[in-house]
């Protein structure tokens, strides 16, 4: 049985790792999270295999055979050493996973040098991105343009119910909560256009609440930003500045 377990682990782990789980990797954060997921797979597949093989083996080895109808199993009541082992081992493993996850979290969320701020304002059922400029003016756009390689910090809020801001390729997501401003950090690493989705149920239009995200070269970005008129009227209704700050 041990052999079976080892072999199937050896087969399953690579299998689990080659499965193309994630969408394209388009941010530093995404990279870290993909590795974290691989680690989690490597840590948990063996556990799953142990459970499965034990069940399978017991069915094969200990199932009732004709003539055993009235027989009972071995009266084993427990085994303290074994119980201690399967308390300590998972605990250790889990704490290990937690500490690694924590380091990933830190490196993903610590503020970086040269960050660019983008305000994300959401309402039923649309996104609105505004780029603050000197003199209180700001460029407002329904489409999100980001320069490749530049750390971005999103200041997210909502004008009605709870929405959220999720770009699968960035592997980052955060709710837009009315009344407070939430902070999300992403460093795009791959040019291309991706969907931004609202993943928090927000009413009838929830399924269709999407926006386009374009990661472009810094040069292209500068050009695009220059073309936009500062303080232009928001394309989708008036946003206004949301009341209340981080509370």
């Amino acid at each position: 049985m041990v052999v079976v377990a080892v072999i199937s682990t050896a087969i399953l782990i690579p299998l689990a790792l080659i499965v193309p789980w994630f969408p394209a990797k388009a941010s530093v954060q995404a990279g870290n999270i993909h590795t974290l997921y691989d680690v989690l797979l490597i840590a948990t597949v063996p556990i799953f295999v142990v459970v499965m093989t034990t069940v399978g083996f017991s069915i094969w080895k200990f199932r009732m055979r004709p003539g055993q109808e009235k027989q009972d199993g071995a009266p084993i009541h427990g085994n303290t050493r074994l119980e201690i082992v399967w308390t300590i081992l998972p605990a250790a493993l889990l704490l290990g996973m937690c500490s690694y996850a924590y380091t990933v979290l830190r490196s993903n969320e610590d503020s970086k040098r040269g960050e660019m701020t983008v305000n994300v304002t959401e309402r039923q059922f649309a996104f609105e991105f505004s780029y603050p400029r000197a003199g209180g003016k700001s460029v407002v756009s329904p489409v999100l343009y980001l320069p490749k390689g530049r750390p971005v910090v999103f200041k997210i809020t909502s004008l009605d119910v709870i929405h959220s801001f999720f770009v699968p390729e960035f592997s980052e997501k955060l709710d837009a909560v009315p009344g407070i401003t939430t902070t999300l950090r992403v460093t795009p690493t791959r040019t291309g256009s991706y969907p931004a989705e609202c993943t928090e149920l927000c009413g009838a239009g929830h399924s269709l609440m999407r926006a386009a995200v374009n990661v472009v070269t810094p040069a292209q970005f500068a050009a695009w930003l220059a073309k936009q008129k500062s303080g232009a009227p928001p394309p989708i209704g008036s946003a206004g500045t949301p009341p209340g700050e981080q509370g």
Binding site: I33, L36, A101, N108, L174, T199
Partner: peptide, 13 residues
């Protein structure tokens, strides 16, 4: 796995 914050941030919702 969901308990691991960074991964949950990706798959939550």
């Amino acid at each position: 796995m969901l308990a691991m914050i960074p991964f949950d941030i990706h798959v939550s919702q």
